[in-house]
Write a protein that binds this DNA or RNA. Sequence first.
DNA 1: TGAAATATGTAGACCAGTCTATAGGGAGCT
DNA 2: AGCTCCCTATAGACTGGTCTACATATTTCA
Lengths: 185, 185
Amino acid sequence: MGHKGTETRERILDASEKLIESGGYFNAGLNQVIAVSGAPRGSLYFHFPEGKDQIVGESLRRAGATIGGVLEGLADSGGSAAEFVEAVIAHLGDRLEESGWARGCPVATVALEMAAVNDDLQQACSDVYTAWTAALASRLDGRLDADDLAVTLLALIEGGLVLAKAHRSREPLERVGRQVATLLP
Amino acid sequence: MGHKGTETRERILDASEKLIESGGYFNAGLNQVIAVSGAPRGSLYFHFPEGKDQIVGESLRRAGATIGGVLEGLADSGGSAAEFVEAVIAHLGDRLEESGWARGCPVATVALEMAAVNDDLQQACSDVYTAWTAALASRLDGRLDADDLAVTLLALIEGGLVLAKAHRSREPLERVGRQVATLLP
DNA sequence: TGAAATATGTAGACCAGTCTATAGGGAGCT
DNA sequence: AGCTCCCTATAGACTGGTCTACATATTTCA
């Protein structure tokens, strides 16, 4: 695949990722993906012959890797475990607020919409969450209940993002952030 | 409005509520609502002249009241605050598992899909979450940080439901449940 | 020249919403 | 009582638009 080809492919995934973050699977209509990415309709099926679900699946896994990288970056920047989690929450809150309360967690939306009926997308969501949980747990290494804690912190973050989007406010994230210290003494 | 009329109206809301719980706003297509409820298309626009968004909004508020009632029922059944929260988690986990990992929180899905672009539905989601938060906070009355705790517990529950649906497993809810005691000593 | 990639058009299903027609049942009148 | 009138509610065909997917050129580059 030539240079221009991979570039188009990336632009398609970028557009799809952004649309999914903003409103989930059904917000990422192919016409919208075409409009946002500027890619022609034909290129879409050239690069993703399995169609929409392939685009969504790859977008999810790529977004998962991106945010996973952010987690590892913040984990390496020192500070206590609670400070690390609060930094993650602040980062995701920035993203959400700066986008006008649009860009939340892409995985959560697709999971709630599709996990019950689409095995491939359910697997993609599950895999991304597993990777994030592992990243959190490794930052908490040494604690007896690191696995339970990692899942709990991920639930807290995902739930906080849901509430923040629903209220269009950082307040839920701030309240959650204040309680993290209780979980991570 | 006669008896038969209200019955049809309720059946429409029941169907819509179930479809929203399973897959959100776009899973509650009017054709699906018609098929599940058995109501004819004309009745749908007779009872809900503002169309789909009115049906979804009323479904959300009704579902919010139903689950709010469950919260208050469990709050009145004695036990510690942690036991209360664990009972709530167990109840929602039952609902999710018994439906084949379909019936999660209706509010979360619609919030993630629509809150950024639809003011009415965003308000409905926000109102329901506010009511649930108040119910949780009143059960925690007497604690200094009852408001922060209530939001945190709601985020934990919502996030736990997202993870459970994504993994098609109770495990995330169980891990979260085990950590609740740390938050509510 | 040949493959890779782009560009465009279109098929067929599904979507929300509108329209007209009509069944049913109670209120009011004779 | 028997009759008409009217409102509630049901019923389903129909419209314009959007969706994903596919088919068929055309361009671009090695």
